[in-house]
C-alpha cells in the first residue's frame, strides 16, 4: 500500500477534570484518562476486547453532551471537556454496583475468587460498605460438566468478556447469552452442558478474563482462583508489523 494513502491519526487536545491533555483522535476517553492517571471504574471493559459499554460504570460527563457517555467506547474530540468525578457520577457508580450485588448471589467469603475479584475490589474502591437494594436471591445453577473448568452463574455480572474473548480471540464462539433481562445467562453452544460442547477448545481464555469467580478452574478452593493477564501480550504479538 502507498504509505501516503494511509490515514495518520492526528493529535487533539482536550480537558479531563480541568487538566489539559493531548491524545490521538482514534483513542477512547478511557485510554486517554488512564494514560494521564485519571481513574475511571470499569467492569465489562478489558484491553484487547471490543468495548461494549454494558456495565455503565465508566460513564463520564462531557460538556455539551445531552447524556452521560461511556468512556470505554467514546472517541475523543478536539476541545472536549470531560469530568470523571462529579457528585452525580460518584452516586450513579455506587448505585450501579449496588444493583449488581443485589442481582445474584455474591457470597465473597466462600468464593474461589475472594481477594482476586474485580467486583469485590471495585466495591471497596468505590467505598461501598453495604447494599441498600433488596437482594433478589435467584436460584441459579452451577455447571461443572467440563473436565477442567466450571461456571457458577450465581457470581456472573453478564459483562460478556467470556463471550467476546471466545469469539474475538479464540475464534470458537462457544459462549453466548440467552434470555432477557435478569433472566439472561451466559451459555455454551446452544445451552448445553459445557463438558459436552463441541466448539469449546478448552483453551481457558474465558476463565482467565472472567472478572469474578463465575468461571474458574476446578480444584480451586476459596480465594485460590487467581487470573493471568494474557490479553495485552497476545494483542501485541498479533499486531501487524508495519
Amino acid at each position: 500500500m502507498n504509505p501516503s494513502a494511509q490515514k495518520v491519526p492526528s493529535v487533539k487536545t482536550l480537558q479531563i477534570n480541568g487538566k489539559d491533555v493531548s491524545a490521538r483522535e482514534d483513542q477512547t476517553l478511557l485510554d486517554v484518562a488512564r494514560e494521564n492517571g485519571v481513574f475511571i471504574p470499569t467492569l465489562c471493559n478489558l484491553d484487547g476486547l471490543t468495548p461494549i459499554g454494558a456495565c455503565r460504570l465508566c460513564l463520564v460527563e462531557v460538556k455539551g453532551a445531552r447524556r452521560l457517555l461511556p468512556a470505554c467506547i467514546t472517541q475523543i474530540q478536539d476541545n472536549m471537556e470531560v469530568f470523571t468525578e462529579t457528585e452525580t457520577l460518584v452516586k450513579y457508580r455506587k448505585m450501579i454496583l449496588e444493583l449488581l450485588f443485589a442481582e445474584r448471589n455474591h457470597v465473597c467469603s466462600v468464593c474461589v475468587s475472594n481477594g482476586h475479584c474485580e467486583l469485590q475490589a471495585m466495591a471497596q474502591k468505590l467505598g461501598l460498605d453495604h447494599i441498600r437494594y433488596p437482594y433478589l436471591y435467584p436460584k441459579l445453577a452451577v455447571d461443572a460438566s467440563h473436565d477442567r473448568f466450571a461456571v457458577d452463574h450465581n457470581r456472573c455480572i453478564l459483562c460478556q468478556r467470556c463471550v467476546r474473548v471466545c469469539d474475538e480471540i479464540e475464534g470458537a464462539h462457544t459462549w453466548d447469552v440467552q434470555g432477557r433481562g435478569t433472566a439472561s445467562l451466559v451459555i455454551t453452544d446452544l445451552n448445553q452442558p459445557w463438558g459436552t460442547s463441541e466448539s469449546c477448545t478448552s483453551c481457558g481464555k474465558c476463565v482467565q478474563v472472567c472478572p469474578t469467580g463465575t468461571l474458574f478452574e476446578k480444584g480451586r478452593a476459596s480465594g485460590e482462583m487467581t487470573k493471568r493477564e494474557f490479553l495485552p501480550y497476545l494483542t501485541l504479538m498479533r499486531e501487524e508489523r508495519v
Binding site: S109, D129, H130
Partner: peptide
C-alpha cells in the same frame, strides 16, 4: 454496628434463600 458479612449482606446464611 453491622459487624461482618452476615450482618452486612447475609453472606453464607443467605445461601439457603434461593431454595
Amino acid at each position: 454496628v453491622s459487624l461482618g458479612d452476615c450482618a452486612v449482606n447475609s453472606n453464607v446464611p443467605s445461601m439457603r434463600n434461593p431454595f
